[in-house]
Amino acid sequence: MAATPKPRVATVWLGGCSGCHMSFLDLDERLIELADRMDLVFTPIADVKTYPANVDVVLVEGAVSTEEHLHMAQLIRKRTRFVVSFGDCATTGNVTALRNRFSVDELLRRSYHELAPGGPATPSKIISPLTLKARPLHEVIPVDAFLHGCPPTADQIWFAVDNLLQGKIPELPNVYLRYG
């Protein structure tokens, strides 16, 4: 192992469409530079089962929409130095929160009964129950920084990650403050 360990970075996918992660991949050749500068210790694009301890930076995509998300969010907070809300769903609830005007029962009935192509099929117990409302991440745990946009642009992500890897909480210039 190197004398100065590289920052340990994670990305997490909660209640979102993974568009923010797609945008992350839009960093293109900058990804190669990132690979040199950090260790990606947990991410949906790699097959890691448990969220490790002592993570330096995490980008959390999506709203907190299920019991599992809630549990995950709390775990993330305890195990991570800098938690970043990654994109509009994590920051405002956004599209994930569109379901909040319906009750969980209504939602399940509509999705798994009325609209199910092969007839009614209630989700099995393996799937985590939905929380009453989908909530932005910071309503559930303290969050250190926010990346806006649906999705955030690659440049915006670069600016933030670059700062974070230098150990700074990114102060995003106003030009990156864009919802939607």
Partner: peptide, 10 residues
């Protein structure tokens, strides 16, 4: 108390 980062001693 609010949730905070708890570094884990290796």
């Amino acid at each position: 108390p609010k949730l905070v980062y708890e570094p884990h001693e290796a």
